[in-house]
Design a binder for these strands. Structure first.
Lengths: 124, 124
DNA sequence: GGACTGTCTTGACATCCGTCGAAGCGGAGA
DNA sequence: TCTCCGCTTCGACGGATGTCAAGACAGTCC
């Protein structure tokens, strides 16, 4: 369930989207901004930024929700909500395996965002 | 009025903050997440993402508000509000010169965010 | 000094967002 | 089958956010 590019209003941050010269090199057009802003917004919460980091840096490339939840002073539903936000932003993928649900990062999405923010070494 | 590093609750994204190995390499600690999330949140709006791009890609490194406002179907105060958000996130600097106000990007801040999102070419 | 221009601030309002408790669903084990 | 456990969804609430109209402030030109 992770094959289609942008299911149902999800952001398309798939690897093959040939997206985006650096933001500082040329003006980002409105459509591109509208497509990428949700990803930045998803990272714009401290909890989600930590979740994203825990997922992206996990050994084996994936991590169980049961390892994420106890790292915060928040209820299960709240963590679940944040994970959903990251999922809908196209930053992570989820997979149920038996009792547990595992999350893994989408490196291509992170790479796109990083590329957009890239700045020339020191121009001028 | 643009000399001090992090005045009054602003995010410290100054160049000398030795901040942040990639998010995918090691878990981002809570304080770091709290410090950086506002910058991502500021970029999490399509209008601000475009503004940021227009400012960062401007010839001469700076751009007048009078050139920013007409690019959107929004009122002056609304644009001003978004610019303030970018300023308080430490992403841009403002300077009044005569009648007009000029904005310029803070490359160091963008670099920090880009570095945080950096992913190994293809690990594994 | 006075009028004009450009930008920011204030106040108000509708909407969105983070959070929780309660309930639902799916799988595992007795 | 029945119960327990993990995770998600639903419904609700308070606070934050995006937007605008009106007013305030800074600087220029006559």
């Amino acid at each position: 369930m992770s094959k289609q590019a942008a299911p149902l209003g999800l952001v398309d941050l798939s690897a093959d989207a040939p997206c985006c010269p650096p933001l500082a090199r040329r003006r980002v057009p409105a459509e591109t901004a509208a497509a990428l802003a949700p990803a930045f917004k998803a990272l714009g919460d401290p909890v989600r930024l930590q979740l994203m980091s825990m997922i992206a840096s996990a050994d084996g490339g994936e991590i169980c929700v049961c390892d994420l939840t106890p790292a915060f002073d928040l209820t299960g539903p709240t963590i679940s909500h944040h994970l959903r936000t990251l999922r809908e932003a196209g930053l992570v993928d989820a997979e149920r395996r038996g009792t547990w649900v595992y999350y893994r990062a989408r490196p291509a999405a992170l790479r796109q965002l990083a590329a957009l923010l890239t700045v020339e070494p020191t121009r001028g």
